[in-house]
């Protein structure tokens, strides 16, 4: 009995540590294969790239923790980029919070629709994502909206750097710290973990399950919008399809980091590792001259594999 328990604990430890090990192996491998990789600028670029992906994936982590999924994140991020690009000249700095609030609202709406109408989250967010994508197309008339010179100055807080460290990295770090605090120290974080790990027990403990879930989707929407804002500021433009290739890497980052798709097990910290793995694999493949399209194949397969490894099958007696 004890040996089984300890063996299981050992397996759990290995499972939690393996993403970190994978990350180390990747860094060392690519570092020795391509010496240029270890240079400060390359690393800075890598981390800046990762920051945007991480911000989106961090939001997704909250939703996946409660056992849901948010397929609307890329549409929300794109909408946020359009909002920022269009309203920066009008609202000035207020355009940033406006875009993020819009994302938050969409997220809360997704959560509400999912919980209230008892629609599986992947369908609810597919639907809200469709609505949002339509809105973004409508607002921008399907065009890319360029942020002009004046706006670029206001976006400096994203594209600039502080003491030589790119601001993007700092923003990513802030989100990470905030996310960790929320997960580890707030009742909401605790309830999320409990709901994901055992929804009936959480419900029977008096936790307000529906409210918690809606908040989780809200966070996901808000952070997806922040990711869109960062992207827009970085590229000096917003577009209704700006974030279209981000959904898969974002989900992959969460799952590869070791957060179980069934919920309950995971953290924003693991998502940091996952996002770094995704970025490095992407860069590594570019180094190896793997076609950018072929990378999708790798990510798709890796996602399936990571899900298969991290999933808790005892929780889903019938796998639909």
């Amino acid at each position: 009995m004890t040996t089984i328990a300890s063996r299981m604990a050992g397996a759990a430890w290995l499972r939690a540590a393996s993403p970190v090990l994978l990350l180390v192996v990747l860094v060392v491998g690519i570092g020795s294969a391509a010496p240029g990789f270890m240079r400060l600028e390359t690393l800075g670029l890598l981390l800046s790239d990762t920051a945007v992906l991480f911000v989106m994936a961090a939001g997704l982590t909250f939703v996946i923790m409660v056992g849901g999924i948010d397929l609307s994140v890329q549409a929300v991020a794109s909408l946020a980029s359009v909002v920022v690009a269009q309203w920066l000249p009008v609202l000035g700095y207020a355009a940033f919070p406006a875009a993020i609030l819009a994302g938050l609202a969409v997220g809360l709406l997704s959560g509400f629709v999912h919980v209230r109408f008892r629609i599986p989250s992947f369908v609810a967010t597919l639907a809200t994502g469709g609505v949002v994508a339509g809105l973004a197309l409508l607002a921008s008339h399907g065009q890319t909206v360029t942020i002009l010179e004046a706006g670029r100055a206001q976006a400096r807080w994203v594209s600039g750097s502080l003491l030589g460290v790119p601001d993007l990295i700092l923003i990513g770090a802030l989100v990470a710290v905030g996310g960790l605090i929320v997960q580890r120290f707030t009742p909401f974080g605790r309830y999320s973990a409990a709901i994901g790990a055992g929804e009936p027990a959480a419900w029977a403990s008096g936790i307000r399950v529906e409210r918690t879930k809606i908040v989780a989707f809200g966070i996901s929407g808000g952070l997806a919008a922040l990711a869109g804002v960062l992207l827009a500021a970085r590229l000096s433009s917003g577009s209704p399809t700006l974030a279209n290739e981000m959904l898969l890497p974002a989900i992959a980052a969460v799952v590869v980091g070791g957060t179980a798709i069934t919920g309950g097990v995971g953290s924003v910290a693991r998502t940091i590792v996952g996002a770094l793995i995704v970025s490095i694999v992407r860069i590594g493949m570019t180094f190896l001259n793997v076609n950018i399209f072929a990378q999708q194949i790798v990510f798709g397969a890796a996602l399936v594999l990571a899900v298969a490894i991290t999933i808790d099958r005892t929780k889903i007696p019938i796998v639909k």
Binding site: I69, I261, G300, L303, V304, V307, I311, V319, K320
Partner: peptide
């Protein structure tokens, strides 16, 4: 034995 939405997403 993974949910279809994840398998087919991949």
């Amino acid at each position: 034995r993974i949910p279809s939405f994840m398998a087919t997403l991949g």
